[in-house]
Amino acid sequence: MAVVRVGTCDLSVAREALVEPIAVLTQWARSHGEAVVSFQEAANEGPGRALTPAGASSHG
C-alpha cells in the first residue's frame, strides 16, 4: 500500500509568493490581449491566411 504524506503551509506565505507573478501576468495580458485575439481570429479563418497579427511585421 502506498503512503501519502500531506504537508501544510502557511497560506499567507503562499499568497505573498503569488502576488507578483500574477500581477506581471495580468499586466502582460492587458498589454497583449488584443494581439492575441487578432492572432486567434486570423488562425480561425483557415489555412493560407497570414497569421501575423495586425500591425506586426512578419519579418521580425
Rank of each mutant, 00 (worst) to 15 (best):
M1R: 10
A2Y: 05
A2W: 04
A2C: 07
V3K: 14
V3Q: 14
V3W: 11
V4Y: 14
V4P: 04
V4S: 10
R5Q: 07
R5F: 01
V6D: 04
G7F: 15
G7W: 15
G7D: 14
T8Y: 08
T8D: 05
C9W: 05
D10M: 00
D10V: 01
D10K: 00
L11C: 07
L11R: 12
L11F: 03
L11V: 14
V13H: 00
V13C: 00
V13K: 02
A14T: 10
A14I: 13
A14E: 11
R15D: 00
R15C: 00
E16D: 10
E16R: 07
E16K: 05
A17V: 01
L18W: 02
L18G: 01
L18Y: 01
L18R: 00
E20H: 03
E20A: 05
E20Q: 03
E20W: 02
E20I: 01
P21R: 07
P21K: 09
I22M: 08
I22T: 10
I22K: 02
I22A: 06
A23T: 02
A23I: 02
A23E: 02
A23N: 03
V24N: 11
V24F: 12
V24L: 14
L25I: 02
L25Q: 04
T26D: 09
T26R: 07
T26H: 03
Q27K: 15
Q27A: 14
Q27D: 06
Q27N: 09
Q27S: 10
W28G: 01
W28S: 03
W28R: 05
W28P: 00
A29K: 13
A29G: 11
A29M: 14
A29F: 11
A29C: 12
R30Y: 04
R30Q: 14
R30M: 10
R30E: 13
S31W: 02
S31D: 14
H32Y: 13
H32M: 12
G33K: 08
G33C: 08
E34Y: 08
E34G: 08
E34N: 09
E34Q: 07
A35S: 15
A35L: 15
A35C: 13
V36R: 11
V36D: 06
V37P: 04
V37D: 08
V37H: 06
S38A: 15
F39S: 13
F39V: 09
Q40F: 12
E41A: 10
A42W: 02
A42C: 12
A42E: 08
A42D: 07
A42P: 03
A42I: 12
A43S: 14
A43P: 06
N44V: 12
N44H: 13
N44L: 15
N44C: 15
N44G: 15
E45F: 08
E45M: 15
E45V: 15
G46Q: 03
G48E: 01
R49F: 03
R49G: 01
R49I: 13
R49E: 10
A50C: 09
A50T: 13
A50L: 13
L51Y: 08
L51N: 11
L51E: 09
L51D: 11
T52Y: 10
P53K: 09
P53E: 05
P53Y: 09
P53C: 05
P53L: 04
A54Q: 11
A54M: 09
G55A: 06
G55T: 05
G55H: 05
G55F: 01
S57F: 04
S57T: 04
S57D: 06
S58V: 11
S58K: 07
H59V: 06
H59E: 05
G60N: 06
G60V: 09
